[in-house]
Amino acid sequence: SEYETMLTEIMSMGYERERVVAALRASYNNPHRAVEYLLTGIPG
């Protein structure tokens, strides 16, 4: 799925699956924002 592709691409940058899933959830599946959250911390 498109979601799995995003997940895999972000994980390939060296992040753990659960952190990527949390970041995508926080960003409403916006991959650019999710990466930003992984770099700066997930808000909330």
Rank of each mutant, 00 (worst) to 15 (best):
R17A: 05
E18S: 10
L7H: 00
T5A: 14
E9C: 15
R17L: 08
Y15M: 02
P31S: 06
A22Q: 10
V21H: 05
R17G: 03
M11V: 07
L24F: 02
R17M: 08
Y15D: 01
M11F: 04
T40C: 15
L7E: 01
T8P: 02
Y3G: 02
S1C: 14
E36P: 00
L38H: 00
I42N: 08
Y15E: 02
Y15L: 02
E36N: 06
T5S: 12
Y3R: 03
G14E: 02
L38Q: 00
T5R: 15
T8H: 14
S27C: 12
T40M: 13
E2G: 09
L39R: 14
V35D: 01
R33S: 07
I10S: 00
T40N: 14
R33V: 15
S12K: 13
R33G: 07
S1T: 12
S12G: 12
M13A: 04
R25T: 09
A26P: 01
L39G: 05
E2K: 11
Y15P: 01
E2C: 14
T8K: 15
L7G: 00
R33K: 15
M11Q: 04
A22H: 07
L7I: 15
R19V: 13
P43M: 12
G14A: 02
Y15G: 01
T8Y: 14
G41P: 05
E36G: 04
R17T: 04
Y28E: 15
M6R: 04
E9D: 10
L24I: 04
A22D: 10
R33W: 13
P31G: 06
L7F: 03
P31N: 03
M13D: 02
M11H: 02
E16F: 06
E2W: 14
H32L: 14
E4G: 06
G44K: 12
T40D: 09
S12V: 06
T40W: 14
L38W: 03
A34W: 03
M13V: 03
M6Y: 07
S27E: 05
E9N: 12
M6F: 08
E18Y: 07
I42W: 11
G44T: 13
A26I: 10
P31L: 14
L24N: 00
M13H: 05
R33L: 15
T8L: 15
H32K: 14
I10Q: 00
E2S: 12
A26D: 07
N29P: 05
A34M: 03
G41A: 09
I42V: 09
V21Y: 04
M13Y: 07
R33N: 07
H32T: 14
R19D: 14
A26H: 11
E18R: 05
Y28W: 08
T8F: 14
V21A: 08
Y3P: 02
R25V: 10
Y3D: 04
L24R: 00
M6T: 05
V35Y: 07
E16W: 05
V20Y: 06
P43N: 10
Y28T: 08
R33D: 10
A34I: 04
S12L: 12
M6H: 06
Y28H: 15
A34F: 04
N30I: 06
R33Y: 09
L24C: 07
V20Q: 01
N30K: 04
T40L: 13
N30V: 07
S27N: 07
Y37Q: 05
M6W: 11
I42L: 11
V21Q: 07
S1G: 10
G44Y: 09
P31C: 12
Y28V: 09
E9L: 14
Y3K: 03
S27G: 07
E18P: 05
Y3H: 04
I10Y: 04
V21T: 06
E9V: 12
T40F: 14
A26Y: 08
E9P: 01
T8A: 15
L38M: 04
R25C: 15
V20A: 06
L7R: 01
M11P: 00
T40S: 12
T8D: 09
T8I: 14
P31I: 13
A26L: 11
E2Q: 11
E4M: 11
H32S: 14
E18V: 07
R17P: 04
A26T: 05
T5I: 13
Y28Q: 15
S12M: 11
N29E: 06
L7D: 00
E16R: 04
T5Q: 14
G14P: 01
A34E: 01
R25F: 08
E2M: 11
G41N: 09
E18T: 08
V21D: 05
E36Y: 12
Y15C: 02
M6P: 01
E4V: 08
P43A: 10
V35Q: 05
N30H: 05
P43S: 09
E9M: 15
M6S: 04
T5W: 11
P31K: 14
A34Q: 00
P43Y: 09
I42D: 08
V21C: 08
Y28N: 15
E16Q: 07
G44D: 13
T5H: 12
R19G: 04
G14N: 02
E18W: 13
Y3A: 03
R19T: 11
M11K: 01
Y3T: 04
G14W: 06
A23V: 03
T40R: 11
G44W: 10
L39P: 01
T40G: 11
G41F: 12
E2F: 11
A22G: 05
V20K: 00
N30F: 03
S27M: 07
V35H: 04
Y3V: 05
L38P: 01
P31Y: 15
R33H: 08
Y28P: 03
R17F: 09
I10F: 06
Y37D: 03
E2H: 11
S1N: 12
I10W: 03
P43T: 10
Y28I: 08
L38N: 00
E36W: 11
V21R: 06
L7N: 00
L38T: 01
A34R: 00
S12D: 09
A34C: 03
E9G: 08
V35K: 08
A22K: 08
N30Q: 07
R25H: 12
L7V: 15
G44M: 12
Y28L: 15
A34K: 00
N30T: 04
R25S: 09
G41E: 10
Y37V: 06
V20D: 00
N30G: 02
E16K: 05
A34H: 01
H32Q: 15
E16N: 07
V20W: 03
N30E: 08
M6A: 06
Y15N: 02
G14K: 01
L7S: 01
A22W: 06
M6N: 05
I10K: 00
E4F: 09
E36R: 07
T8R: 15
G44V: 13
M13Q: 06
A22Y: 05
N29H: 06
M11R: 02
G14F: 05
S27A: 15
V35T: 04
E4L: 12
R17N: 03
G14I: 05
N29R: 04
L24V: 03
L38F: 03
E4C: 15
S27K: 02
E2T: 10
Y3F: 10
Y15T: 01
A26K: 08
N29K: 04
R17K: 09
E36I: 10
P43K: 09
L39S: 09
A34L: 04
P43I: 12
G14C: 06
T8N: 14
L24W: 01
H32W: 11
E9I: 14
I42E: 09
A26R: 07
V21E: 13
E18H: 10
A26W: 09
P43W: 11
A23Q: 01
A23N: 01
A22S: 07
R19I: 12
L24Q: 00
S27I: 06
T5E: 12
A23L: 03
L39H: 07
Y37M: 13
M13N: 03
S1P: 12
A34D: 01
E9K: 13
V20C: 03
H32F: 12
T5D: 11
N29Q: 06
V21F: 03
I42H: 08
E18A: 10
L39I: 12
L38I: 04
A23H: 01
E36S: 05
A23W: 04
R33E: 09
A23F: 04
V20L: 03
A22N: 08
N30W: 04
G14D: 02
E36H: 13
L39N: 10
I10A: 01
P43V: 11
I10T: 01
Y37A: 05
V21I: 14
Y3E: 04
L39D: 06
L7W: 03
S12Q: 11
T5G: 08
S12R: 11
E4S: 07
L38A: 01
N30P: 01
M6I: 10
R17H: 06
E16V: 06
N29I: 03
S1V: 12
L39Y: 05
V35L: 15
M6D: 02
M11Y: 02
L7T: 02
L38G: 00
S12E: 09
E16A: 08
E18F: 07
V35N: 02
R17S: 04
E9Q: 14
Y28S: 15
R17E: 05
E16Y: 04
T40H: 14
T8W: 13
E4T: 08
Y15H: 05
E18G: 08
I42A: 09
G41H: 11
I42P: 08
G41M: 10
P43L: 13
T8V: 12
T40P: 03
P43G: 09
M13S: 03
V21W: 03
S1Q: 12
E4R: 07
I10R: 00
